[in-house]
Structure formats: C-alpha cells, structure tokens
Write a protein that binds this DNA or RNA. Structure first.
Lengths: 205, 205, 205, 205
DNA sequence: TATGAATGAGTCTTCATTCAT
DNA sequence: TATGAATGAAGACTCATTCAT
C-alpha cells in the first residue's frame, strides 16, 4: 500500500458498484468502470482477476451475511422444534429470522437487487437456487419430526422444493417492491401469513 | 440458389430459436444465427427488421395464446362470481384455467422459458409484469363482490399485487421445474392448493 | 405500359426526389426510396440502371434548362458585342440572362440545390465546374474583342477562370439564401452590380 | 510489439489523413484506415473517441491558426480604421491578412481542402458558415464608421452576408485552384482587387 | 502499484445490386 | 412489368483481456 491506502481499489469498487447496479452484470462495461474511477484498465486487472471477481467484490458482503443468518436459522430451528411444532399460535422464530433477512437486504439494498435479479452471466447467476437449496435442506431435516405430529402430511420433494422456491421469491419481491425498509417490515407480517397459509394448506390434509 | 416455400426464413427461425434459447436474448448472436442457418446477414434483415423482431417471431405465438386465455378467464370469472363465491368446496374454473395455461406453456416449453426468464434486453423484458397487471386488474374487479361476503377482509394494493406476482411466479416455477407436461399437471393441484391457502390466509381474518 | 400508365415509375421518382433532397446523394438509401414508393427493389432496377441514373432523373430537367439558357446566352452575346461593349450605361442582356437563370433555379428550387450542393458521389459531383467551363468558354470568345476596346486589360486564364467561378458561386448563393424567387429577384441587381464591380476592377487598369 | 513514441498513433493519423483526403469524411472507412496503419480497430478507439475526433485530429491545427488570424485581424482593423478609411490608395492591412491566410492554407494544403470542401457529415460540416459569420461580425462593427465617410451607402444585411460569403469562397478558390503557394500569392493581388471592386461597386453609390 | 498501449474477435445493422420467376 | 429473395461486403463501434514497463 502506498500513501493513499487502497484508494485506487476503493474508487474502482465504487465505480463498479454504480455500473453494475445500473446496467446489470452482462451490460456493465469494465472500460466504463475504469473511466469513472479515473483509473486505467491495467489497474483493474491488478486488483481483480476478471469481471466476475470484481462483481463478487460488490455482492459478496450481503451474500455472506444472508448466508450466515440462514445457517444459524437452520441450526436453531432444528434444536427448537425437535419435539413440538405449534405454528398456529405464535409468529415465533420464523418471523424473527425474516426480520433479520429484511434488515440485511435493505442494508445493502442495491447490492441485493443486483445479486438476485441482475447477476445473469456471472458466477452468481444461480444464487437464487443456492438459497433455495439451503432452506430446503433445513426443511428436510425437520420433515421426519413434523410427520410424527398429528395431521401432517408427508410432502413430496417436488412440492417442498416448490414451496421453498416461492419463499425465496417472496423475499425478493419484498426487496424489489418496497420503497423502504420500514415499508418492507410493515408488509412482512402479511407476507409471512401468506406463506404460512400456503404451507399449511399443503402440509395439513 | 433461390429457395422456395420460405425455406430460408424457416431455417433462420430454427437457428434463431436454438440460439436464443441457449443464450438468452442479449447474448444471442445474429451472426451465429445466420451462420447456423447457412444464410448471409443480409437475408436475415430481409425477413426481420431487427433482433427484437426476430425474437418476437419466436415468442409471439405462446404469448398470444396465453394472453387470450387470461382475457377470457377474466371475463368468465367476473360473470360467474358476481353473486356467490364458494372457493372451499370446489376446484372450479380457476383449476380449469390453470390447466389451460399449463397446456400452452408446455406446448411451447422452450419458447415460454425464453420469454419468461431470458428476455432481458428485448422489448419483452417486462412481460412478467404485464401478466401480473392483467391478473391484478381481474382481481380488482372481483374485490368489491368478495368483500360483501362473510369473513372477507379488504386487501390493500401492496398485498394484492404481491399475491398476484407470486401466482405468476408459481406458474413459471411449474414451467421451469417440471420434466414434462404430465408432471406439471400432476403437481398442479398441490400448487393451486398452496396458492389458495396463502390467498385465504390473507383474505379471511 | 399497363393500365396505370407509368404509375410505378412516377412513385419511384417522387420518393427518390424526397430522399435525395433530404439526405443528399451519398446518404440517400435506395431501400428507403423503394419502401416509400411502395415498390420492391427489383422494380427500381427495372426502370433505372443504378443509383446514379435515378439521381439523374431528378436533376436532369433543371440541368437541361439551365444549359440551354447558357448556350443561347453565349451565342447571343457573341453576336451582339462584336463591335462595342458599353457595360457601364445599361444592365443589358446580362441582367436578362441572370433573371432567366434565377427563374429556372427557383422553378426547380430543391432539385437545383440538390444538384449544386448535394451531388457529391454522383456523376454530377463536378457539375459546378461544367457550368464554369461553359461560361468561361463564352468569355474567352469575347476576349479578343474586348481587348481592342480602350482601357481593357488582357486578363490571364487564371483570373478569368476565377471570376467565372465566383459568378457561378454567386448564383448558388442566391439559390440557397433566398426565401423565395421574389426575394432573389429583388437582390439580383445588387449582386450583378457586385459582380460587375469586381469584373471591371480587374478588366480596367 | 508495443511501439514507443506514439508510433502507432502517428501511423493512424497518417493513414487517416490519406483516407480522409482522398475520400472525404463520409466515405472514409475506419476499417481501411486501420488496415493501412497496420493496426487493429481497437487501437484506433484507444486513441480516438470516434470518427469525428479522428477527423478533428487532422483538421484542427489549420483551423486553429486561421481562427487566430481572423480574430486578430478584426481587432486590428477596428482600431486602425476608426477615423479614416482610404481603401483606394493602399493595399493596406487587408492585403497583409490575406497573405497570412494564404500562407496558413498552403502550409496545410490538403487539410484545408479537406476541411473546407470534404467535411460533410462531420462536426465541421458548417465551418464555412462559421468563417463567414466571423468576418461578417467584423464588418458589422466597421459599418457605422464607414457610413460616416463621404459617398458610402448603407448596405443591408443580405448584401453584406452575400459579399462576405463570396470573400470566403474566393479564398477557397485560391486554395483549390493554385498549384503552389507561390502561384496563389502571385494571383492574390488580382483577387483582392476583384473583391474590392465588387465591394466598392456596392458600397459607393 | 499502476500505466498505456494494443489485441482481435465481436456487436448490430445498412448498403447497392442481382436474378430467377 | 414487377416481385421476392438473397448476396456479401462494409459500416462504426465495443468488448474483456493482456502485458511490457
């Protein structure tokens, strides 16, 4: 590092953020990014291996935080609901986790929109599926326990995958259609209600 | 070497179909299409105004058919449910329409996937929103009638829009995750059940 | 000729006129002309050998008329001024010819502007030089007679060519900078006065 | 193969010069320029924003120098002739400025021809009008002073504009029709005489 | 650390023209 | 008379990437 500690790299990241956010991965131009950062192409390639890696720099932070919450959520849920599951009477941990995710998504609003809707062409273009898989894995672990309880159907893989996918889409909707974090949090309960409604319609006979 | 019967045009369309489907609108290359069709660039531009119009040639047919079903659906539903609405006990017309849509989507499977998930950059890039709007408009007309019935809440615009959006996503899911029309039709009832479950969870207090 | 006598050809000419006038020779598009004429490319090539010939169809008429006036003018002037030349006291035949030329130029205003300022790339791109040569040839015939008169210098070829060229430019100016034939005719005397002023400054010692 | 000293850029400029001069702005081909420079298209666009900027590189130098002389000319003339104006007996500063302009024009002969007669389509396509306007503005400042002197008419805008335009055309003629600077300078006095002759024919009653 | 130069394949689109029917 | 189809070369311009210095 010279005098200006990471200055160039920061300018590149800032310019990249704006370019990616406004044009999406494929249509973003590295040339443009360099120009707006006041830096030459060579400099970009000193700090980043390629376009994909630069893109990663922009979206990795929120991605990491969301991943962490999801992982913790699963661990927690598994411990808690081993023996009972009484969804009806509480908004319980699901609601808490949902709030956490909304908080993260709006903390990095533009980055998350970028990651979840404009990443086509990049190595993150299937990130949605990754989230779905993580959630699904968690639900699968819970499955056997739920099935022991009264009135719960066995749900086949297709349906489970579908419902998990919809859940992810719901959060993306919240992210892309709410003006502010406050609005999102205000609407969240209705959305959770909606998700659960669908969930129980399928799980209960 | 003058071909008859629109042979050249057909070869162009076929090559375009493959290129668009495998790469999406933006990343498809007209050069490639021409090369694979064994035709010069000039020929392409004799038949099609530009890339967008060529793309339209591939996706307009399913788009048209889906639009028609949606329009008829709305008209029908509005007439039928003016006075009563007993969702619980039947799978009624909604199910019928859903089946119709699935039929169309799988009749033109690749084209629909293209249109609904790979159209970014083309004039159809907001087609999903258009479907959502059409459905939403239909539901809004039904709103006042539903509100007269026992136990139905008034649903605000945000939530209505959200639910409609999810409904469209559900169909896209069905399209992209089912191996065959048969599998899609087999899963459809569960999905409809899921949608309705969410729907009533919100509509009923 | 079929029923519609020369209809297609006329439509082509009309469309070509508009295209050439608004874009100049090089930037005019034959494709566009055909489209606006509601005719296929093949038809154009049935009536016209190539772009140049079509262009000729538009500009040949005024060209012909101007040529004729210039030719007659020379013949006339030569006969008249064999023995005397008293420019100072009359506006004489020069003025008459100038009026005639202005009349023609404004009768085909757009076509003449096209021919004189937008013909680059066509076979008429040196038409200005042709006019200059014609005029010059006329003046050369008059030269020996003028030189016999008192106070007239011999004018070298370079200067004669220059003055003739300027004279042509003066008419082009009149054409391109006057709003109407009337305005052009109103300004014409001043321009002729200007030309003659220059002329005599050189011819007389 | 990395060249030093702007070698590539120079080769590009040289090739561009030749291409533009021989074909004019519109018909010059960037592809051709690159080929003749032995360079790839990308290289061209590294050095120049677009065709217009490359063209500017060729013609901006003479343009700048001519502009400077014109500007200084105006300032000077205005100072000098505030109180008297005796055109008849001297060739005065007008002649000096004319010589200067001829010197510049022939220093960059091909470039000036390009700029003044082949720039259609480029951002310089109206450069002639710009020169006319500059000169005209200068004359307008002198107008009131001239009118105070004996025997000077007021000249209307149309005529003034016309005469200025002709003056510019005269210099273009000199440029395009003289074999060498020497020939141009030899002819210049006659041309100035011609211009003044026209000028006084109009200015004096 | 970063620059400046350069690659080379690629983008979509337009052109005047030809010719069998 | 005219069409409809097709050519093939060319247009300006952009791309992500490389590399010697």
């Amino acid at each position: 590092m010279t005098a200006k500690d990471g200055e160039t790299k920061n300018r590149l990241i800032k310019a990249a953020r704006e370019e990616f956010i406004s044009k999406g991965y494929t249509n973003a131009s590295l040339r443009n990014i360099c120009k707006n950062a006041g830096v030459t192409t060579g400099a970009l390639y000193f700090f980043f291996k390629d376009k994909d890696e630069l893109f990663g720099e922009i979206v990795s932070m929120p991605l990491f935080e969301i991943d962490r919450v999801l992982t913790e959520h699963q661990a927690f849920e598994f411990d808690t609901y081993q023996d009972s599951y009484d969804e009806e009477e509480s908004e319980g941990p699901d609601m808490d986790v949902s709030i956490l995710i909304v908080e993260i998504m709006f903390k990095y609003k533009q980055e998350c929109i970028l990651l979840l809707t404009q990443a086509a062409g990049s190595k993150y273009e299937n990130i949605k599926d990754k989230f779905v898989s993580e959630l699904e894995a968690g639900y699968k672990k819970m499955g056997p326990h739920l099935e022991k309880l009264n009135g719960y159907n066995k749900v086949d893989d297709y349906t489970l995958h579908y419902m998990t996918h919809m859940q992810v889409e719901a959060f993306i909707y919240l992210l892309t259609h709410s003006k502010s974090k406050e609005e999102a949090l205000k609407e969240l309960p209705y959305i959770v209600k909606h998700i659960r409604g669908g969930w129980f319609a399928v799980f209960k006979s």
